[in-house]
Design a protein around this nucleic acid. Sequence first.
DNA 1: CTCCCGGACAGATTTACCTCA
DNA 2: AGTGAGGTAAATCTGTCCGGG
Length: 212
Amino acid sequence: MAVLPTNPSSLELTISIPGFASSPTTFLPSSTVKKLDMNRVAIEEEWMEVEDEEENSLNGDTPRKKLRLTKEQSHLLEEKFRTNHTLNPKQKESLAMQLKLRPRQVEVWFQNRRARSKLKQTEMECEYLKRWFGTLTEQNRRLQREVEELRAMKVGPPTVLSPHSCDPLPASTLSMCPRCERVTTNTADKFLTDAVTLSPKVSTPALHSRQS
DNA sequence: CTCCCGGACAGATTTACCTCA
DNA sequence: AGTGAGGTAAATCTGTCCGGG
């Protein structure tokens, strides 16, 4: 395995040898892998050595170690992600080279990043829908109150006004509005019920167009 | 057209590491 | 200083889709 002297001044984070995608577990002696500088072990021959070592130690019981990206690496990955959420093989290769990482690590990072941004988006939508639900609930309450008030008002002989001329219509005998010919009931009660049913339309928010 | 294979990806899960009480 | 809980992110696993032979 390639164990190189650490250089604390070049990195904020020091890392251990990461696992490889092709091998589910990385088994390296913990005494030797601790605090390895990722940026110093990434050249090809060294990775080959690491892979050999891994191959040889697959049956060991040393727990795999996890890579921690440096701030610089994360920053560059984020920058690339901002312009492109997926990479073609060429881009992946060149970015990996630039970051001194393996292409597989770049690929994994992008996969996880996509998952994180989708999760974030879903959470935002969830919050938005919660607020919308609250608004609708409140609106519904208001309309119910209004219905109750209108019901209370109709206790005496009801007078229903034509929606067009505002002329009083005899509600008890009304069967149809003379103008629009749509009211089929002859009771003010039904008229009021319809008014509630036909409450103002609430436009559905365009959830997917809110992403910026 | 169907089958098979390999690569890319999403989603779920595991796990190492970090922070904080 | 030590420790356990919880969070984060890298890595892995599994299943699906799709293009090419």
